[in-house]
């Protein structure tokens, strides 16, 4: 008998605090599986953000550093400069990365910091109770856009990944989703490539993961998966946005 799947060594045995139907757990597992497969758990330092994944340090069984809101790329820069031979990743939500932390992510990417950023985009603030995120869709109702996001007043859904992909520093930037098994497999491939790029010392890598938030979207988990496909994917199309191997 061949064992084809097991609980990843790189996850602790603590129960996730995430809501039912939230895709954080899926993404955590993928990262842990990659850490196992690349045998880097003891070489990795993760940076947790402020947001729903603020407690990520409870779940990844590697050295972890809790950052202040939006500053994970700056904290990761400090870590990586001291330990250039270690693997350093940040795990950030859309409020963290695309709102309060725009300066830090842009400049870490532009410097080509040899780190990997996992960017969870669920189009809403989760931890604080469902406020508008910069990634919230047009017309989407949140606790701070009770009449739906009005683009004239609240601006447009921000496309961070597209913006970052025009910089010269990044080596690999992609947008993936985890709402179906097929997409999960593709997401893992992209995430693994990002970590491998870092191991090769090829510079900044970022994977945006379209994610669900049934609790704050106010819909059932199954409906949330459909909502992601029907409404988020047209605004945030999947695919590789920058891959210097392809460009060269």
């Amino acid at each position: 008998m061949e064992k084809i799947a097991s609980y990843p060594d790189s996850l602790t045995d603590k129960h996730f605090h995430y809501c039912p139907g939230c895709t954080h757990g899926t993404v955590h597992r993928l990262i842990a599986e990659i850490m196992d497969e690349l045998d880097i758990r003891e070489e990795t330092i993760g940076v947790a953000p402020v947001g729903c994944s603020v407690l990520a340090y409870e779940y990844f069984d590697c050295d972890m550093h809790e950052a202040s809101h939006g500053r994970a790329p700056a904290v990761a820069t400090g870590i990586k400069r001291v330990h250039p031979d270690k693997v350093v990743f940040t795990y950030q939500g859309d409020g963290d990365l695309a709102s309060i932390g725009t300066a830090e992510i842009v400049h870490a990417a532009n410097r080509g910091e040899n780190i990997t950023t996992i960017f969870i985009n669920n189009a809403i603030y989760g931890m604080t109770g469902g406020q508008m995120a910069p990634t919230t869709l047009e017309g989407q109702k949140t606790t701070t856009t009770p009449y739906g996001r009005n683009l004239k007043e609240a601006g447009n859904p921000i496309k961070m990944t597209e913006m970052l992909s025009v910089l010269d520093g990044p080596s690999y930037i992609a947008r993936v989703s985890v709402h179906t098994p097929k997409h999960i497999r593709k997401a893992k491939k992209a995430l693994k490539k990002a970590f491998q790029r870092q191991l090769e010392g090829r510079g900044f890598t970022l994977i945006e993961v379209l994610s669900t938030c049934p609790t704050n979207w106010g819909i059932k988990p199954k409906d949330a998966l459909n909502w992601l496909e029907d409404y988020m994917m047209p605004v945030y199309p999947l695919g590789d946005l920058k891959d210097i191997e392809e460009v060269e």
């Binding site: 500053r71 700056a74 904290v75 400090g78 870590i79 990586k80 001291v82």
Partner: peptide, 26 residues
Amino acid sequence: GVFLQAESEVAASNMVYGAAGSGARV
């Protein structure tokens, strides 16, 4: 050693946070 001109003082202090947590004199 490493000298890094940060994008802001906010970022600089958080880079210090990361480097200090990594065990360096910073």
